[in-house]
Amino acid sequence: MSYDTQLPHAPAPVAMRNGLGTAALILGIIGTLSGLVPLFFWLAGILGLIALILGLVGTGRVKRGEANNKGVTVTGAVLGLAALILSVVGAVITFTAVSDAVEEIDKTLKDSAPATPGAKGKGQTTGKDAAAKALAADETAAYDDGLEITVSAPKTFTPGEFAVGHTEGNKAYKVTVTIENKGKKAFDTAGTLPTARAGKDGADAEMVLGDKGLDVAFEGSVLPGKKATKTFAFDAPADAKLLTVEIAPAMGLDHDAAQWDLKIG
């Protein structure tokens, strides 16, 4: 009698599942390198989060004996955490830089924008709304950079024989214009000269020139805390009741023009 002896089969080896650890390492490396460039903080954050999750899951497999790449998995999780930290730092740097750039652009635009006059004197309040209406005699156009311009009430005078710009039968009027610099920078007055209109039709009032004490235009600079005063004359019809004087500081390149309605006649 013969007996067949059957030996028990050895259990099949368990296949190691090392994919998560490897993926965590690769993503952690890419995420960390991305985090070194602040502008790529968003990419570092995404890859770092994924790498950290995969690394933690992969570590669990190692503990259960389903994977044997503990070093790779732990390294991937650590790099994922590092990428997240770099992502936060990069975001702070990027947003701070953008904020500073926006502030600098706003400052540049404000500095380059023409200054807008308000009104001071005789109950007027300083503000941009005042720029939309004419000022009265002895009122001041106050600009937001500290420049102030005042036009006096007109005074009649008789032009001399050598004066030009006066028409027989018309009346001539003198006005005094004062520029005061209350700002922090010198103001170049080059090109600053008044123009005027008179009469019902608002016809141009010609400037009277060549008489003693009359000026043609401002020249030179007005330093902070200083003033410059000039006297100008205009020719108006005899029946005119209003002389409108307009002044555009420095030809209006940096400042809006202001107007004064001066009663005459």
Rank of each mutant, 00 (worst) to 15 (best):
S2T: 03
S2M: 12
D4H: 13
L7M: 15
P13R: 04
G19K: 06
G19M: 08
T22Q: 09
L27W: 05
I30N: 06
I30R: 09
S34V: 06
A44C: 06
L47W: 03
G55L: 04
T59M: 13
G60W: 11
K63R: 13
E66I: 12
N69R: 03
T73G: 07
G76W: 00
G80A: 00
L86A: 01
V88S: 04
I93M: 09
D100T: 11
E104H: 13
D106N: 13
S112D: 09
A113D: 01
T116V: 15
T116A: 10
G121P: 07
G123D: 05
G127L: 08
A131D: 08
L135H: 04
A136K: 02
D145Q: 06
E148T: 08
T156K: 14
F157G: 01
T167M: 01
A172P: 08
Y173I: 13
Y173V: 01
T176Y: 10
T176F: 03
K182H: 10
K185A: 07
A186K: 14
A186T: 13
T189Q: 08
G191Q: 05
L193Y: 13
A205G: 03
V216D: 00
F218V: 02
G220N: 03
K230S: 08
T231G: 04
F232N: 00
A236C: 10
D239P: 08
A240T: 07
A248C: 03
L253E: 09
L253I: 06
D256M: 13
G265W: 14
